[in-house]
Design a protein around this nucleic acid. Sequence first.
DNA 1: TAGATTGTTAATCGATTAACAATC
DNA 2: TAGATTGTTAATCGATTAACAATC
Lengths: 220, 220
Amino acid sequence: MSDNEKAVSMAVVRRLPRYYRFLSELLSENVVRISSRELAQRMGVTASQIRQDLNCFGGFGQQGYGYNVAVLLEEISRILYVKDSAPTILIGVGNMGRAVLTHLPFELRGFSIIGAFDKSQSIVGSRVGSHTVAHVDTLHDFCLRNKPLVAVLCIPKEAAVTLSAQLIEDGVRAFWNFSHYDIALNHPGVVVQNVHLGDSLMTLSYLLHHPENSGSAERE
Amino acid sequence: MSDNEKAVSMAVVRRLPRYYRFLSELLSENVVRISSRELAQRMGVTASQIRQDLNCFGGFGQQGYGYNVAVLLEEISRILYVKDSAPTILIGVGNMGRAVLTHLPFELRGFSIIGAFDKSQSIVGSRVGSHTVAHVDTLHDFCLRNKPLVAVLCIPKEAAVTLSAQLIEDGVRAFWNFSHYDIALNHPGVVVQNVHLGDSLMTLSYLLHHPENSGSAERE
DNA sequence: TAGATTGTTAATCGATTAACAATC
DNA sequence: TAGATTGTTAATCGATTAACAATC
């Protein structure tokens, strides 16, 4: 399935979710077909880029016609595995963990939350969304029994250092990392997506005070 | 001040916060000097890149010695304006808004939260962190009196469309945007940093299922 | 068929890496 | 001084854009 897909650069991969969003919107507006030119205009990119990006995965369009919105969305859904349910745990149910757990529709993006953990006795046992928070001491046993593949880390850096190593031992293969710990540096081969909100905020600060560059920054 | 700085690409700008983080850590470890080679090793990048990046802003090192950690951190702090206090408002005190408000140290990153707003009567009047949530209907008056420069949007797309236009009218020049609305497309010239957590999660899904690419993705 | 638009190759542009002379 | 390491130029690499033949 992924065998007939060429080598794809990260630049392309990072644009896929944006295509997914725009195509979802088009579908909900009952748009049936769209040309790369028109989509490019809506998204603020070039038509060339869209055609190049999509052709990394296959020829989803038709000459003289363009792309069928539903078909293209379906293809990108498949490429992104958004209909999958990768067993996922969340660790650290503080402000950020709670927000992520209740705010993000994991099920619509290829993940299924099967457990939430914290070390604070005041949080353990409480219900967040549809989950009862368990103590992080029970994590190892939980992993042996339930084999989570993905972990969302909403914990401080120090905790992330030891926990990520333990989780990798126990079979976790991908991290959605809100901590400041650079998991990938010490664990090559593990899949990591970092969410560095502080970095994003500092970038905003730079752009606010150096507006010359902002033009290039907006479409990102 | 920013006049003696060359044109800087977004690729470089986005790396600055990471330098800031690593240098802060080095300083807290009482490391006095560091060479580009050693820093590169710690960060998992090339020494060439570090020297190129820093030289966009000036020659902060010394041949034969390397970089003084404190001096370099100070320079990057200045470039990022982290000691500034740009007057900032937050709109939408739901799960995500509350987490951002209580979790992110805005004051350490160049911003100062001067107001929080929501449209729900059950939230208006409550205290979050050190702020009392005001009704979004009072926003226009608030802007006229307090002139916020930056707005953090933790609201749904539809609300973001109208509110961002109004805020720009009222003098807001930069947005930290958690919504799915593409502000920059309709308001060129305004500074925007998007935080698309859903996109990040979908990228993780892609990488989980196409691990070939992951090598290049980790250091990001 | 004629017109439109893709898929794909070639050209351009920009970013990263390598190399090295300058110099502390 | 000799050794180390920067600042900076040149070479490489990759990503974006332009062009156009294929074809629906």
